[in-house]
Structures are given as structure tokens and as C-alpha cells.
Design a protein around this nucleic acid. Structure first.
Length: 725
DNA sequence: TCCATTGACGTTTTT
DNA sequence: CGTCAATGGA
């Protein structure tokens, strides 16, 4: 068979990976080195050359977008339908497994997915019900604790240090929360993975079935896998499954979320006969950008080692702009984008990247003023909007009235006089008898536990849901959606809001009906025995939709560095490159490789740029209302000076940082200060240190000093009694 | 039940 | 400074 179409457009290492006959392959794919191409070609190679059945391949990604792209490109290459292929996200595949084996997984057929917001609400409810102080035991933290444990594959009984009062309290919450979920048939995101893992552990016959069938596993973004995902993959691979793993340890930026870069090392250790291939030729960026990125990332200690190169031009140097303040920075960036547009380039070829979401605002304001269209990534997504979730909650109650999260959400939306008191009675009943809210509400009504009026309104609500379910049983999904919105009178709930707000809500509800109308039950969901309704609800949770779907037009792209991973733009701005902001203060303070992860984030940002990279920082920045004096990011210092070019020549970039330069900021606050940034100082108790930042003004001025022996401290300047040295 | 005022808090996010 | 949620009065 002629396989040239599979190999012609590959370079040597890519070809080596695609055609490898080793049991397992690890592809260390640098940024812009064609990793998706390798994955897709490997998949095609397996099917067309090794004659593997499409049914025998499982390809796993992290995002729906990546899964979609892989499926599409594979289809193009193969020239036939990719339907039989299992391509999906970890969560999507786990979900499918649980659907097909809900009995073995001990889940009701009607189980539904609890998204992050639902999860937090439920936890808040539980913490309150336990009579705990929400300030001391925030739901956010409980959520973090539980998800982190689940990501590690731990159930409450597996968690040690029960003698530790704080831990044992969280474990208690974990237990209560899991009880609630189990009763209501609710599965959170982490639970999907954990259950899928347990399904195989507890049912060897099920595992055996999938082991036999899925002999080839392809995994994308392997550096982002967490402990449970890796365990799940190992279990599935067993002794005979073949793994083809693609990842880049230098682009691991989700450690804080449970991702384990170490899995790359574990993989080489745990599997025999692993062929490691490095993809280092970069097809994206200019030589200068790559050289700077290489130099930066070389400062990380724990690396597999990799050096990007290109046979393209070295391009222009990286432009560094030292802005007076954040306003000036935004002004500058927008001005340069305007120049770019004036040269006839496209707006969507440019991106502004920043560390924190709050930074987007200034850029938005300036772009708006310049009438340049822009798009901000990472806002709220369609299926996450309040009104959409409200309407879906009614639908969820039709599917399964024991869905406590859904009931809590809409029981009094719109107001039907089921207030806090009435709900307290229902919750008490539920707690005492181990029932769901729906069941408890029924009990309370039949046992006449309510005052007269409360009894009437609660049974009216029960009847409303029951009658909707009965009446709409055979309706199409779109009609059900519309019916639920009409019958619940949900729209009336938004009437008190400002007109504009209300109008968009009503509009979104209309769009939701359209979405339901257009929804086609996927074959695999039908096979797994899902109803159209169940499938739709799952999709809403698993693929919350585009962030700002409508405007796919020619827009400047604004996003955090995290969401930029995987994307590329001819023109990239990295804004807010200041120590404390990037690397973020909280990452610098914490130990445990956090700084290295920040550095990788910087590396990711830089390698997004194809032609021109701008780096900017502000000398002073208003944060949380007060003025901050900033030091340029240490990451700038780590880039070779000869690859950088000052945009404002009169102020030098300090490299290494030896400034003693009183800030030339127009605010003029520096006159009040006896010390300057970067200055060496002596403290009677803490010894020698370096001035890192100032905050506040006048007698309230605080100074951030990094002491050689004692570490970084904030001191009130007036009392610190610092001496210059 | 609703609205307004007050208070705490302030990385990164997909599923 | 700006957001979100909780609180308390009408």
C-alpha cells in the first residue's frame, strides 16, 4: 500500500514517531512542532498500515475543541468517516462508560452531571446544614479539597491524618457531600473520572472487555494528566495495550489543578519498551523568539530537556516597553495594534496576553475608544448563564426530581412563597430521614408538617413538576424546553431586573429553545440508552459552549496566558510583565515548583508568537485601589539582552537588575521615598535586604524588602528604620 | 419578599 | 478600585 500521503509532509523525528513499532511511544513535542499532526498521522498509520480496526483505537484529549480538531483532521487524512473511532475528552469518555455501565457503577439511569457552580452551591448548603461557620469553612475550599482528593483517586476512607482536626472536618464534608450526590444521582467532574476508574477496578469483566477492544491508546497533552487519569490509562492499557503519548513538560501549567508532569517520567518507568521521540523543530516562531524562549526555560531545573529550533528567519528582536503605569501600557499596546492594522494586517492576527483576568479591562476600554473590534476569551459560557441554568434545572427535575441541586435552584424561582422557613422544614426532614429534598417535600406534605399556606404552595410546586413531566413526556426536546420555560413562568422572575439585562436573559432563553430544537441525539448516546433529554443535559454540562460564540469575526484576541496555550498569532503582546504580577506574588511566595510553573507559563506565552513579540511592564500599577511600584519581571532578565529591544530608549532595561533608579513616574511619589527600588538596605533585626516594592503613600508607605536571611517582608517605612547600604 | 447598603476579598480553568 | 454575597430594614 502507498503510504506516502502519511509520511511525505513529516520531518524525520515526526516520521519516527508515527511509524514506530515499539510497544509504547513518548513524543516530547515542543511548542509549534506539529504534535497534532503527529497524533493524527499516527492514528491513520495504525489503521491504514497496521490494519488496526478503527474500533480498536481510543484517542483522548482534554478539551472538546482538541477532540473535535483531531477527529476532523483524521477524517480528512483517512478519507472516510471517523464515526467508529473513539475520540474524546477524558471526561466525555468516562461519562460514556458510566452511561453504558450505570448499573455496575451503581448510578441511576437518570444520573446527571454537576458542574462546578452546582457543586459549590451544594457544598455551601451542606456546610450550612452542618451548622458550621461559612467564614471558617468556605465552600470554595471544600470544593478544592474534595476535587483534589478525587483527582488523586481518594475516597473519604482513604484519606489519612484523620486526627488532624481541619482535615477531618473536610473529610466529613466530603462524606456528606458524596451522600447527597449519591442520593440525588449527581456526578461532578472529578467523580466522572474516579467512578470510571472504580468501575474497572470493581468489575474485571468490564475492564477485560475494554482491554480486548481498545488495544491502542493515543493521549494528547499528557503533561496535563492528573493521578486518576494516569491510573485509568494504565489500567486500560494493562500488559498488551499500546500507548502513544504526546506531551511537553515545558508547557505544564496546570499543576495547581492537580496535573502531574511527573506522569511523563512515570510513563517511561511503568511501561516497557518506550521509544522517546523529541520534536524540536518549530514551524511557528522566528529564531529570535525561540532563542529567547529557550534561554528562559533553561532556568528550570527539572526538565526532560529540549531545545526548539527553526530553519526560518530570526526575525525582529523582542520589543520591550517600560510603561509609566498600566494606563500607559494599555495605550501603547493599542497604539501598536492600530499600526499593525494600518499596515493592512488582520486584527485577529494579534493577541494581548496577561496573567490575570482583571487586566483585560483597561485594554478593552482602550480598544473600544479606538474602535478596534476585540474578543475576550474565558468569560461566561452559554450553558453557564444564570437564566440558561435556571431553565435547564426545570428540565433536570423532569428527568430526575431527586436532583437536589436543580430543586434548590428553582424551587422559588420565580417566587412562589416557598421561602427560607418552608425550605428549612423540608431540609430537616430530608436530613432526618436520609431523603432527597423532593422526597422530603412529599413527606412533609403528607404528614402535614407545614403551616396551611406553606403546605399549599409546596404541593403546588410538586404538582407543577409532576404535571409538566406527564404532559411533556412525548414532546420533542425543543417543545419540552419551551414548555418548561412557559409553565414555570421563569421569565417573570427576571422582570424586576434592569430592562437591558432582562432582555438578554429572555433572548438567551430563546436561544436555549433553539439549541434544544436543533439538538440531535448522538448515536453513541442512543446506544448507551440515553433519552434525548438526558443526552442534552449532559452535553450542556460537558460542553458548556463557546465563550463568546457569536463574534468569530476579525477581532483582536484578549486572553489569559493560560487560555492561550495551543493557539498562535503573528503578533503577540505579553502585558503586565512585573514581578509580583507575573510571576505572580502567590507563586513566588509558595514553594514547591510554583515559580517554575510560572516560568513555563511565560514560555507558553512567548511561543504563541509567530512574527513579533512585545513584552510590556508598568513601573507603577494601581492594584486593589492602591499604587504599587513595580520591578520588571525577573523573566525579562532571563532572556538574552541581545534579543531584546527597548521601545523607549531613554529608559534602560536593567539587566542584571542594578537600578538605584528613582522612579521617573509622573506621579512623583518617589520624592517622598528615601529608598529606591532594587536598593540594598539594612534592618536592625532582619539584616541586609533589597527593596522590591512600595505600597501606599506618606506615613502609610509600606515597603517590601527581600531580606537575604529572613525572606521577603512588608514593612511600614515610617517604623522600619531602614538604612541604605 | 425585596431592595439597598455594607463588608470581605482579590491567580490561573476545563471538564 | 470593583465585584459579589450577606445582611437588615421597609
Amino acid at each position: 500500500m502507498d503510504v506516502s500521503h502519511l509520511l511525505d509532509e513529516l520531518n524525520e523525528p515526526q516520521r519516527e514517531a508515527v511509524t514506530s513499532s515499539n510497544s509504547h511511544v513518548l513524543v516530547l513535542a515542543g511548542a509549534g512542532s506539529g504534535k497534532t499532526r503527529v497524533l493524527v498521522h499516527r492514528l491513520a498509520w495504525l489503521i491504514q498500515v497496521e490494519h488496526v480496526s478503527p474500533l480498536g483505537v481510543l484517542a483522548v484529549t482534554f478539551t472538546n475543541k482538541a477532540a473535535g480538531e483531531m477527529r476532523e483532521r483524521t477524517g480528512k487524512l483517512l478519507g472516510f468517516s471517523t464515526r467508529p473511532l473513539w475520540v474524546g475528552t477524558f471526561h466525555g469518555i468516562a461519562h460514556r462508560l458510566l452511561r453504558m455501565h450505570c448499573q455496575e457503577a451503581d448510578l441511576p439511569e437518570t444520573f446527571q452531571i454537576l458542574d462546578a457552580e452546582d457543586q459549590q452551591r451544594l457544598l455551601r448548603r451542606i456546610i450550612r446544614d452542618e451548622g458550621m461557620n461559612e467564614a471558617d469553612w468556605p465552600a470554595r475550599q471544600a470544593q478544592w479539597f474534595i476535587n483534589a482528593r478525587k483527582d488523586e483517586g481518594q475516597r473519604p476512607q482513604n484519606i489519612e491524618h484523620l486526627d488532624h482536626p481541619v482535615t477531618s472536618t473536610w473529610v466529613h464534608i466530603y462524606k456528606r457531600y458524596q451522600d447527597h450526590c449519591n442520593r440525588g444521582g449527581l456526578v461532578d467532574f472529578a467523580e466522572l473520572l474516579l467512578r470510571a476508574h472504580e468501575l474497572w477496578l470493581d468489575h474485571p469483566d468490564v475492564l477485560e472487555h475494554y482491554r480486548k477492544r481498545l488495544q491502542h491508546l493515543l493521549i494528547d497533552e499528557f503533561q496535563d494528566t492528573n493521578a486518576i487519569q494516569y491510573a485509568w490509562l494504565r489500567l486500560l492499557a494493562g500488559d498488551s495495550g499500546r500507548m502513544f503519548v504526546v506531551g511537553d513538560d515545558d508547557q505544564s501549567i496546570y499543576g495547581w489543578r492537580g496535573a502531574k508532569v511527573e506522569n511523563i517520567q512515570y510513563f517511561v518507568r511503568d511501561f516497557p519498551d518506550v521509544r522517546t521521540v523529541r520534536l524540536e523543530q518549530n514551524y511557528r516562531s522566528t529564531g529570535n523568539i525561540l532563542d529567547a524562549a529557550n534561554a528562559l526555560i533553561a532556568n528550570n531545573q527539572s526538565r526532560m530537556g529540549k531545545k526548539l529550533w527553526t530553519d526560518g528567519p530570526s526575525g525582529k528582536p523582542i520589543q520591550v516597553y517600560a510603561a509609566f503605569n498600566e494606563q500607559d501600557e494599555a495605550r501603547f499596546v493599542v497604539e501598536r495594534i492600530q499600526q499593525w492594522l494600518d499596515q493592512g494586517r488582520r486584527a485577529d492576527g494579534s493577541a494581548i496576553l496577561y496573567r490575570t483576568t482583571a487586566q483585560s479591562r483597561l485594554f478593552e476600554e482602550n480598544l473600544l475608544q479606538a474602535s478596534i473590534p476585540y474578543r475576550v476569551y474565558g468569560g461566561q459560557r452559554f450553558f453557564e448563564r444564570t437564566e440558561v441554568k435556571d431553565a435547564l434545572a426545570y428540565l433536570r427535575l423532569l428527568n430526575n426530581p431527586n436532583d437536589d441541586a436543580a430543586l434548590e435552584r428553582v424551587v422559588n424561582k420565580p417566587a412562589r412563597a416557598i421561602g427560607a422557613k418552608t425550605l428549612a422544614i423540608i431540609r430537616l426532614q430530608a436530613r432526618e430521614s436520609g431523603l432527597t429534598l423532593w422526597q422530603a417535600a412529599g413527606e412533609c406534605v403528607s404528614q402535614e408538617k407545614f403551616a396551611k399556606r406553606a403546605g399549599t404552595v409546596v404541593s403546588a410546586f410538586i404538582q407543577l413538576i409532576d404535571s409538566m413531566r406527564e404532559r411533556m413526556q412525548d414532546w420533542t426536546l425543543g417543545k419540552q424546553m419551551q414548555g418548561v420555560i412557559d409553565d414555570s413562568a421563569l421569565a417573570s422572575h427576571y422582570e424586576k431586573e434592569p430592562r437591558e439585562r432582562m432582555e438578554t436573559r429572555i433572548e438567551n432563553l430563546g436561544e436555549l429553545v433553539n439549541a434544544a430544537d436543533a439538538f440531535i441525539l448522538p448515536v453513541e448516546d442512543a446506544e448507551a440508552g440515553l433519552t434525548e433529554l438526558q443526552s442534552f443535559l449532559s452535553h450542556a454540562a460537558l460542553e458548556a459552549g463557546e465563550t463568546q460564540g457569536e463574534s468569530w469575526e476579525d477581532c483582536v484576541q484578549l486572553m489569559t496566558l493560560h487560555s492561550a496555550k495551543g493557539l498562535e498569532f503573528p503578533l503577540v503582546f505579553m502585558a503586565g510583565m512585573e514581578d509580583g504580577l507575573f510571576p505572580h506574588r502567590r507563586s513566588v511566595d509558595e514553594s514547591g515548583g510554583r515559580l517554575e510553573e510560572e516560568r513555563r507559563l511565560c514560555y507558553v506565552g512567548m511561543t504563541r508568537a509567530r512574527e513579533q513579540l512585545y513584552i510590556s511592564y508598568a513601573e507603577t500599577r494601581r492594584m486593589y485601589g492602591s499604587q504599587n511600584y513595580c520591578r520588571p519581571s525577573r523573566f525579562i532578565d532571563e532572556m538574552p539582552a541581545e534579543l531584546l529591544e527597548e521601545v523607549r530608549p531613554r529608559i534602560a532595561v536593567h539587566r542584571p537588575y542594578v537600578p538605584a533608579r528613582p522612579s521617573t513616574s509622573p506621579v512623583g511619589l518617589s520624592q517622598d521615598l528615601a529608598f529606591s527600588l532594587g536598593q540594598a538596605v539594612l534592618h536592625s533585626k532582619f539584616g541586609e535586604g533589597t527593596v522590591m516594592a512600595f505600597e501606599g503613600a506618606g506615613e502609610h508607605t509600606r515597603v517590601h524588602v527581600n531580606f537575604h536571611d529572613e525572606g521577603a517582608k512588608w514593612l511600614v517605612l515610617a517604623y522600619a528604620n531602614l538604612q541604605a547600604c
